[in-house]
Each structure stands twice: as structure tokens, then as C-alpha cells.
Design a protein around this nucleic acid. Structure first.
Lengths: 145, 145
DNA sequence: TTGCTTGCAAATGATTTGCACTGCT
DNA sequence: AGCAGTGCAAATCATTTGCAAGCAA
């Protein structure tokens, strides 16, 4: 499975003439280790010996290459995760109290229902929907304690 | 109806010792006129004679007062709209091509279904959901042309 | 060699803030 | 008078970029 992931990433990078360097591998590994999207400072902790500018630059390049996704929830640090094409469609649970972000998946049946409903709602405004993003805000177990 | 809105805003501002000044009224009117959340430059166009810093400052203050909501979809300008408590629960259609954002509402039945499904999904991660945000990305009628 | 990469330091750009001034109350 | 509100200009801070050096094909 991991080999598949690596191959897929290599393919995407190749397609835009980017090398899969040690630094980029380290970033990908860092993103894989985390169980949710991470901020840049968090990523730098997971991947020591990585220059901040290189992290930013490579995340941007890999975002364009379809390997990484960038999320912006607030005004401070953005968060990064592996692109859905490489993982699985999922959504986010965001704790209002501590700001942590965790992944959640819905079952396929629900996703189908959602897509259908969203398409219909969007049609009335003349939009064609390509994808949806759902953020669930609330309180995490730690903060509820 | 508008009177209700004004009263409600006044109430919220009063609660945190803010005056409902001409400038703030102008901002609120600007937000009401728009049919979707607006960026700061857009707001300044809708409300001439408003200093940029005052716009930012008052939007921030009114956000804290629960009158305004700030949305961040990308790295550039954030977008502002009236808080849902003052309007109606809705979601956003976002055009990948031109970046425009339009409001959409789902019917109450769908919203109930969503809330229930989200609560269940979140429970498995120990989260308690307070609210959800749904962004539908795609192509608007103008860009599809 | 050729060209992609990297780290450092400097630049950028949205947003914020200090301060002196204006205007309610 | 007394204090909230405003505009201007300067400061912040995440992120981006220029550049010279490193490395792989």
C-alpha cells in the first residue's frame, strides 16, 4: 500500500518535472504520520533539519502537483495534508477550544446522498459542483474533559 | 424585518459596549447588499469614504460581537458576511475559476439529516459538534459559459 | 555541464496597531 | 470634559522570492 502511494506521488511529481528528493519524501512522511492536517511549525517539528522556506516551497510545488492539499481555517498558519487522490475522501473535525483538526470519514451511502443533495441545491444558482468540503466544529474529547 | 435586524445588531453591539456608528452601519449595509460574502476591497467599493483600517477594525470588533462572520477560503483576502444568527443558516458555492462566493440554503429536512449524520460520525472520534460549515466548490454559470 | 534544489536573508502583502484627532454624550 | 471612534502611517507576521551554492542526471 505504501509502495502504491510512493509510486503515485512519484508519478505526479514526474508529470511536472519535479524530483522526489529526500526533503520532499520527508515532508510526505511527516504528513502521513500526522492524523490530521498539520501547520507548518508542526511539520517542521516532525521533520527536523528542514528549512522553513524549503518546506513552504515544496508544499506549494507539491500542492500544484496534486500531492498535497492546503487548508485555511483561520488567519494564522494554514494546514497541509496529503491530497485526497492519494488518501481517501474525508472531512474535518475542528475543536473550537484547542484548534486541533482530526480527520473523519462518512460512509459511502451518506456521501452519495450528500453529493446528490448538493448538486440539486447548486443547480438553482447555476453552479456545477466538483467537490465538497465539510468542516465540523465542536469540542474534542480532551477539551470536553 | 430590517428593523428587527437593526435592533438585533444594536443589542449585540451594546452588549460589548460598542456604538452603532455611521461607519458600522455602512459596513452592515454593505454586507447586506452583497449576495454573498465580500472581500475587504469589495466592501470598500460598496462603502466609499471608509478607511481601510476602520473597515478592518470594525469588522474584527463586530465579529467578536457576533454581528459579522469572517471566512477564509484562500490565502488572499478573507471574506465577510453577516453572522448567521442575524440571517439564516446557509452554505457557500465557490467558483474555482473566478473565486466568487454565493450563498445557498438547503431545505430543513436535509439540514436535519446532516446534523444527525455528522453527530454520529463525530462521536466515534469523541467530538461533540456545535455547527457545520459546508463549502461546495465548482464552476459558476458565468465561468461555465 | 545543465538544471532542479536548497538555505539564507530580504521582500511581499493582508491585516493589525500606535497615535493624535474628531465627535458623541 | 471624557471617552469611544476614526484615519493615517508604521508595524506584524505568515508566506514568498532572489540569489548563490549544492547535487543529481
Amino acid at each position: 500500500m505504501v509502495a502504491d502511494l510512493e509510486r503515485s506521488i512519484l508519478q505526479r511529481l514526474d508529470a511536472v518535472d519535479l524530483r522526489y528528493t529526500t526533503g520532499r519524501r520527508a515532508i510526505v512522511d511527516g504528513l502521513r504520520k500526522a492524523n490530521g492536517p498539520v501547520t507548518l511549525p508542526e511539520l517542521l517539528q516532525l521533520v527536523p533539519d528542514l528549512a522553513q522556506s524549503s518546506a513552504y516551497r515544496n508544499l506549494a510545488l507539491m500542492e500544484e502537483a496534486g500531492v498535497v492539499r492546503r487548508l485555511v481555517h483561520s488567519n494564522d498558519h494554514a494546514r497541509y495534508e496529503l491530497a485526497e487522490a492519494l488518501t481517501e475522501h474525508h472531512h474535518h473535525l475542528i475543536c473550537d477550544s484547542c484548534g486541533i483538526v482530526r480527520d473523519v470519514q462518512f460512509d459511502a451511502r451518506l456521501e452519495r446522498t450528500l453529493d446528490k443533495a448538493f448538486d440539486e441545491a447548486a443547480a438553482s444558482e447555476g453552479f456545477t459542483i466538483a467537490r465538497h468540503v465539510i468542516d465540523l466544529f465542536g469540542t474534542c474529547a480532551d477539551c470536553a474533559g
